[in-house]
Design a protein around this nucleic acid. Structure first.
Lengths: 231, 231
DNA sequence: GCACTATTCAAGTACTCGGTTGACTGAATG
DNA sequence: CATTCAGTCAACCGAGTACTTGAATAGTGC
């Protein structure tokens, strides 16, 4: 079949697919996918990434260097810190293509999330597009419960920034009568779930929106940057 | 930081990213990417895949089972053979997203292909969109040099099926005056390159089109199926 | 039944990968 | 100038992976 000395065609193909596999290998580890997901929300330091992905700093650094070797992320030295960011918007899109491929093809993804939501006490069914419509129409108070930096890097127009960690302190600021919709990083981020739990306990009418800023942007809708208007 | 007993949030996230990584792991091996690429052209038996990817049958079977476990491919028993096919069109799209990410981000891909083309004797620069326009306009004779089954599974409208293996025999069928454009599986498939070499040696005006059927379809253009009209 | 074929399974080996630990670099800060 | 802090590097271990070889499991045709 293939003779002992591999043909130049074969060599070429092997070389090309080896290159493609560099991308594949980079996204073959769950923790690297988690890091990519976080970086889709905006740039971050190694330490921040390590904490948010529950990794040691050394380990995080190594994963990031693998991602950098695959040219998926870039670094920038900012004073004492090293800031990691996605190398290109295409990377974020690719991550989301991978994610939705997994959602569509692997029934386990759905199973796992359902199990988790059940365990947390039967979250109501997400209302999907109807909820999005009301958010867009400004019919509800929209809460961005992510850390303030991520809000600054981009948020849904009109959303208030109330990081989950500050929610209890600042709960008095929120309008009691109006319906509240909380969102965070996306469908697999649990901050909005917790926020809704807190809000409901205090008597608010609160819902969780699965979509994050990235999904919002993917639909071609406008994303606002910077601080919110002074209240 | 994270206490000994991992929080349920962490467990959930780990479980979710583990699932995503199943897709990642599936595309982490160059040979599996090559198999996926081949399957993008149409269904095939294990043996055919093994031969075209220069793998042993047993090894091919194992790779295919990994792809199947990730739900990227499906099997169908056809008499004595097992036919493997992509589980969904989304898989093909995902493969192409990965490929173009690699092309855009990894300079090595370009370097490797240039080196190969040079070695083969300075292929002329591909003319890209201008060539595509002429192909669409029917201004040239279009040659599909892939094996006949692949032609049948889908080809560029109006293209003639002349598998590379039969080209020398059937070269008399081709119109001598008209310009010929040959295509095969895509930019990293070498059959069209070889076809053009043969044609030029025989005095034809021949060019290679980088794009394959998949790229054609990705642009939203019509793809024809089945045999060519009797000549 | 029998031989034949396409594919899969099982076991073994060399290699790679993820993660830990601890030392190291290089830029502020006292 | 020593200290502190963010991040990286190096060495190591256990688990996993790609590929080979040889046996086992279907279907087909006689």
């Amino acid at each position: 079949m293939t003779n002992a000395t591999t043909s130049p065609n074969r060599k070429f193909k092997d070389a090309v697919y080896d290159q493609f596999a560099r991308i594949g290998k980079a996204v073959a580890a769950p923790k690297r996918l988690e890091l990519l997901d976080l970086l889709c929300q905006g740039p971050r330091t190694v330490e921040a990434l390590a904490e948010q992905a529950s990794l040691s700093v050394a380990n995080t650094s190594q994963h990031l260097q693998i991602l950098r070797a695959a040219r998926l992320v870039d670094t920038e030295k900012r004073g004492l810190y090293v800031e990691y960011r996605l190398a290109d918007d295409q990377v974020c899109q690719f991550f989301h293509a991978l994610r939705s491929l997994a959602e569509d093809r692997l029934a386990e993804v759905d199973r796992v999330t359902r199990a988790y939501l059940n365990e947390r006490g039967a979250m109501d069914a997400v209302e999907g597009d109807e909820l999005l419509r009301r958010v867009r129409g400004g019919e509800v108070t929209v809460l961005d419960v992510r850390p303030a930096e991520e809000y600054r890097a981009g948020h849904i127009p009109g959303a208030l920034s109330v990081p989950l960690s500050e929610l209890k302190k600042r709960i008095a600021e929120l309008p009691k009568r109006r319906e509240i919709v909380a969102y965070c990083r996306g469908p697999y981020c649990v901050m909005a779930i917790e926020a809704v739990e807190v809000l409901r306990k205090k008597g608010f009418r609160a819902h969780r929106m699965e979509q994050g800023v990235v999904d919002w942007r993917a639909r071609g809708w406008r994303v606002e940057e910077g601080e919110e208007a002074a209240s």
